[in-house]
């Protein structure tokens, strides 16, 4: 088991093995997203208070959950890099951060276009919105460090910043309970029955899973591109390039 896990830490092994997963993963991702988005747009009934604009939750909630999970991934990968110096972990941390940043921006944007027709405002400095905004800045900080520092030290600095910023994650999660402000409470729970009818709930579950699969796919692709660039002087990359036919 450890041997197997250890072999994934090698960039070459990771590159070659991950290539075999891409096709299947793309199909499953496309399936979840297609069914989820279709049922969210066509099958789910309009909300009795929000009307049709509630359909934005099929983007907003998955993007919000994902942007926090990607952040946790960046921090954990950073920790693995700091502690065990596993090269692939640093590649993962670097590849995941821009994806998380985009989904975090998508969360804020979709929240704004939902807030306008529903709350009557694009933006309020509510606890959850503010902490999500802070998450975006943590991502931007990590990306800036990655860009600005030399490659020998950027991994370490990014990992430290990502780990320090981890305190913001429970703040986002509990913000709707600690401060009773405008943003409504949690949409889902692993332990309680859904608070909405099944035909509204199932599309949401599908898009949440679909977004996570999409992240996994995007992460693998970005890591593969990063590994090639980092290992370009190695023999295995030369052989791979030699055998490449466009």
């Amino acid at each position: 088991m450890w041997q197997w896990l250890h072999s994934w830490g090698s960039p070459r092994w990771f590159y070659l093995r991950s290539g075999r997963l891409l096709f299947g993963l793309s199909l499953v991702t496309a399936g979840f997203l297609a069914v989820g988005v279709f049922s969210g747009l066509f099958l789910a009934p309009a909300d009795y208070q929000q009307g049709e604009s509630f359909r934005i939750i099929y983007i907003h909630v998955p993007a919000a959950v994902l942007s926090q999970n990607v952040y946790i991934t960046v921090a954990l990968a950073g920790a693995v890099w700091l502690i065990w110096r596993v090269k692939v972990a640093d590649v993962a941390a670097k590849a995941a951060a821009p994806i998380g940043m985009l989904f975090c921006a998508l969360t804020l944007l979709t929240g704004a276009v939902w807030g306008k027709p529903t709350w009557g405002t694009w933006w309020v400095w509510d606890a959850r919105i503010t902490s999500t905004f802070l998450l975006l800045f943590l991502y931007l900080g990590i990306l800036a460090l990655r860009q600005g520092l030399p490659e020998s030290t950027s991994g370490r600095s990014c990992a430290v910043l990502a780990l320090a910023g981890l305190v913001n994650i429970p703040v986002i999660k509990y913000s709707v309970e600690w401060w009773f402000t405008l943003h409504q409470g949690k949409t889902f729970s692993l332990t309680q029955a859904p608070s909405m009818p099944a035909e509204m709930y199932w599309p949401l579950l599908l898009t949440v899973i679909g977004f996570h699969l999409l992240f996994l796919l995007a992460l693998l692709l970005a890591m593969r591109a990063e590994i090639l660039e980092r290992e370009q002087t190695r023999d295995w990359v030369s052989r791979l390039v030699g055998g490449y036919s466009p």
């Binding site: 997203l33 988005v37 747009l41 049709e52 604009s53 359909r55 934005i56 983007i59 907003h60 993007a63 590849a95 994806i99 985009l102 989904f103 921006a105 998508l106 944007l109 979709t110 276009v113 939902w114 306008k116 027709p117 999409l214 992240f215 796919l217 995007a218 692709l221 970005a222 593969r224 591109a225 090639l228 660039e229």
Partner: peptide, 24 residues
């Protein structure tokens, strides 16, 4: 509002898949 949200999501999805493919 609805289509702005869905188009932004589509743009992000296409970008995160296409940009690493292009880079490789």
């Amino acid at each position: 509002y609805v289509w702005t949200a869905y188009s932004a999501a589509l743009a992000v999805s296409v970008w995160v898949i296409a940009s690493p493919l292009y880079r490789r």
